[in-house]
Design a protein around this nucleic acid. Structure first.
Lengths: 232, 232
DNA sequence: ATATCAGTTTACTTGTTAGTAGGCAATTGC
DNA sequence: GCAATTGCCTACTAACAAGTAAACTGATAT
């Protein structure tokens, strides 16, 4: 009885209210994200978002306390969708090679669907409060880390020949994220083509021959010199 | 005599003045970029930039007409440095394989040096006036295109086995750009390690076996369904 | 000494936008 | 029907930051 009381006393209507409320939040997020994607976070006013939805600014404020909260929600969705499907795929009872392939496919599918969220998350992260930015960054780290785990396991089973699983995971993560930056549904490539291409790229980098040529001597010298200067 | 007159009449001092003026612009750019990198473009006030330089806001306005001009200069530097070394390397009288390697090495070297410019350019592009944004985008396109040319040439000489040179160039470009996003001089990896790693990755993706496995049937169905819905 | 001028500052205007207070309507419960 | 509560809107404030006008300073030329 002392539990939270939603005015229209019966549970069903309370449930519906919550659903409607959730839906409204979703729509706000969606339109805001589309505008953030197009014009950037700071250049988008909440009045513009409201107009797009056919409502007014205080409407938005009754669902999100601040503009920054709204961005936070978008960013969290952007990274957590990808992380979720990665974790799901990683937990499957399949070979590392299969799991990697499934990860690439399913994360790319998410990217095609939530492209704008991911781009906004990557681009506008900096506009979050420090604490929340750190939280989002942690999720991203987790993503790379879990991907690296699959690679390392494949290595020890002899399925992959990866010299540096951490760096390779970062690179694969980047390759996938990069797709969100350039892919457009109006572009020349179908989603299928893109997935196939990235699959090829990923398979290539996990099966590297050990005898690749290394960096040229001149550049080596240049870099060493620079690092020396900094270190000394 | 009717030519432009710089007050201390002699040419040498006029040259020096221009140099000093150029240097001041450079310093403004540098500090502004550092702040844009840290806090984002919109969250950085020109007063803050001025303070960092120990001057006042109107000082900046006497070197850049608007805040957006300043961002434009930073963005242009961010992309044109990379493009320049790419073009230089691409023009060398060497095999496509050698040129590709040199491109990767030299562009990465630029990225290490101009990291902040590149990140700001990628992230804040959206804040430019449309016309200027398009100009910057064109430069980026040119970058990918010229990279693709090297790949295509390597293909026809039999040095590479690349199924789709355009997409592969985009991916390689992304791999390199991605480095700017995560590399930090304070991180665990040296520049040398990173260069070596990216070289490995790049060599892997230009020597792809034709018999790679393709996309899984379930996902294929899913994607086709979606594209169908959209098209119909 | 004095006029001039580049380069810089102080002090201001102006527009914009996040966020809010308070009222009005519609819905719900009785 | 009537009371209460939720949900949204009109109309506002407060603050911030881009950009500017005009005054100041110190060097140089005459």
């Amino acid at each position: 009885m002392t539990a939270q009381r939603t005015s229209p006393g019966n549970a069903a209507s309370a449930g519906l209210r919550a659903e409607v409320s959730g839906f409204k939040r979703l729509r706000i997020r969606e339109e805001a994200c589309a505008l953030f994607f197009m014009h950037g976070y700071e250049s988008t006013t909440l009045d513009a978002v409201a107009q797009e939805l056919g409502v007014t600014k205080p409407f938005i404020y009754s669902y999100y306390a601040t503009k920054s909260d709204l961005l936070y929600d978008i960013c969290r969705l952007g990274i957590s969708m990808s992380l979720e499907v990665l974790q799901h795929a990683a937990a499957l009872d399949r070979s590392p090679s299969d799991r990697l392939k499934i990860v690439v496919e399913s994360v790319l599918t998410i990217i095609f669907e939530y492209r704008k969220f991911i781009v906004v998350y990557e681009r506008e992260e900096k506009n979050l409060e420090p604490e929340r930015m750190r939280e989002i960054r942690e999720l991203r780290k987790l993503f790379d880390h879990q991907l690296a785990d699959i690679l390392a396991e494949g290595n020890s089973l002899g399925d992959f020949e990866i010299i540096d699983p951490i760096l390779t995971a970062t690179t694969i993560g980047g390759m996938i994220t990069w797709v969100a930056q350039w892919y457009s549904p109006d572009g020349k490539r179908t989603q299928l083509e893109v997935i196939n291409h990235i699959l090829l790229m990923v398979e290539a980098v996990v099966h590297i021959c050990q005898d690749q040529r290394s960096i040229s001597p001149e550049v080596t010298k240049l870099i060493l010199l620079k690092n020396q200067k900094k270190g000394g």
